[in-house]
Design a protein around this nucleic acid. Structure first.
Lengths: 218, 218
DNA sequence: TCTATAATACTGACCAGTCAGTATTGAAGG
DNA sequence: CCTTCAATACTGACTGGTCAGTATTATAGA
């Protein structure tokens, strides 16, 4: 087994555990057992328990950036890109809801300090925001997005809305949990125009973002 | 000293510590010392360390609901209420940024489980959302908000946008951190109308007349 | 042989919660 | 006023268990 494989293996095990219990409720023995490796091996790949936790939480950004890069067609028109990106992120948040929680929790913690970890976290985050901002920028070029707000700011709000959809609307009417609503509200706001842009979508149940948790762990 | 005073005292000390370090990095000895009480006293007012943490994080909702109730005029027109509510919440998130983080972190944790604490948390949260939803409902009545999305859903997105503003836009251009932008984007979306509603805020807006503006918050 | 690993034993720091004892309060009686 | 007493609030040293990280040994593959 290659080195990187084993590192992956450990992080996956860590994710299964850390997403279901708090940091101090998961022991390194637990992680080693779950991963099927010796306890000492953890320390070959990670400096300490904190490092393992951080790396695990941090990995979510890489995965999202990957998704956007692979799944969103680079040359599509703005509307299509926006919808595609939101679909991918929504789907990710749905599949990996617990990882999202773990990321939120870690981000909340790190934001209090100014250490090197905070910097690394913000860099990763910025990469994701930039990817979204690039799409928004196309919207500006094509005259579909207001040019008077920085694209990064709009991208932050968009990501925030997707987060809200995934995290806070779990009990809301399924219809309004659809990611298309996020796009609709992001583009046209709550005032709307008295006419939903989602006529073709409202009754359609094909969207996937409400799928059950992927890395389930009893 | 009355009983409730001491309880307050302990929670304030707990907030100071828990907002700067993680749960497992704060000892009950720390809290007792910070509060200036004996360790045993903690256990007179809180069942255990978890209880103390929960109560402390949870208190933020009460404070926000209080603010909305006291500061937002009940009979004002929709636009004014919306702006007022956003100002109060933004201000709260600014003043108590670390408590916001603590709340996020706790919410992230609780959402993984289905215990009674989760229920209590969600109830408190719902109270806040309902208060916002009531304002949004006035907007619907007055024809200023689209009637095809439940007010609670819109309220969730609004709260999410305020959260994004407070938590994620800390490095953004100060101009776009103004809570008025949240209101603007919430109402009219990223597509805008090619004309900012925030003439006094948007630096490049060529339109002259100034809109009435609430004072900036600290 | 050499390297990476699993398995597991070990240790020393750490800490939540307890409880026996102390301080404070307030009421009742003189 | 002072004293006594009971009830309540409070304290902090102590304990028993926990656990991160290290050391050791044995094994397997290159």
């Amino acid at each position: 087994m290659a080195k990187s494989d084993k590192r992956q293996l450990i992080m996956q095990a860590a994710e299964r555990l850390f997403t279901n219990r708090r940091f101090h409720e998961v022991t390194t023995d637990d992680v080693a057992r779950e991963a099927g490796v010796g306890k000492g091996t953890l320390y070959q790949y990670f400096h300490d328990k904190d490092d393992l936790f951080f790396e695990t939480a941090n990995s979510g950004f890489d995965e999202m950036c990957d998704l956007l890069r692979r799944k969103v067609p680079e040359t599509a028109p703005f509307g299509e890109q926006l919808l595609g990106a939101c679909m991918e992120i929504s789907s990710f948040f749905g599949r990996r809801r617990k990882l999202l929680r773990m990321m939120q929790s870690e981000e909340a913690r790190l934001s209090v300090f100014n250490g090197p970890l905070h910097q690394r976290w913000m860099d990763k985050r910025k990469t994701l925001i930039s990817a979204l901002a690039a799409i928004v920028a196309r919207g500006v070029e094509q005259g579909q997005v207001r040019p008077d707000v920085p694209t990064e700011v709009l991208a932050s709000f968009l990501l925030g809305m997707l987060r809200t959809r995934a995290a806070d609307l779990h009990d809301a009417d399924e219809q309004f949990r659809k990611y298309e609503w996020v796009v609709e509200l992001f583009r046209h706001g709550a005032a709307g125009n008295g006419q939903s842009h989602l006529d073709t979508v409202a009754g359609d149940a094909s969207a996937g973002p409400t799928a059950p948790e992927a890395p389930g762990h009893g």
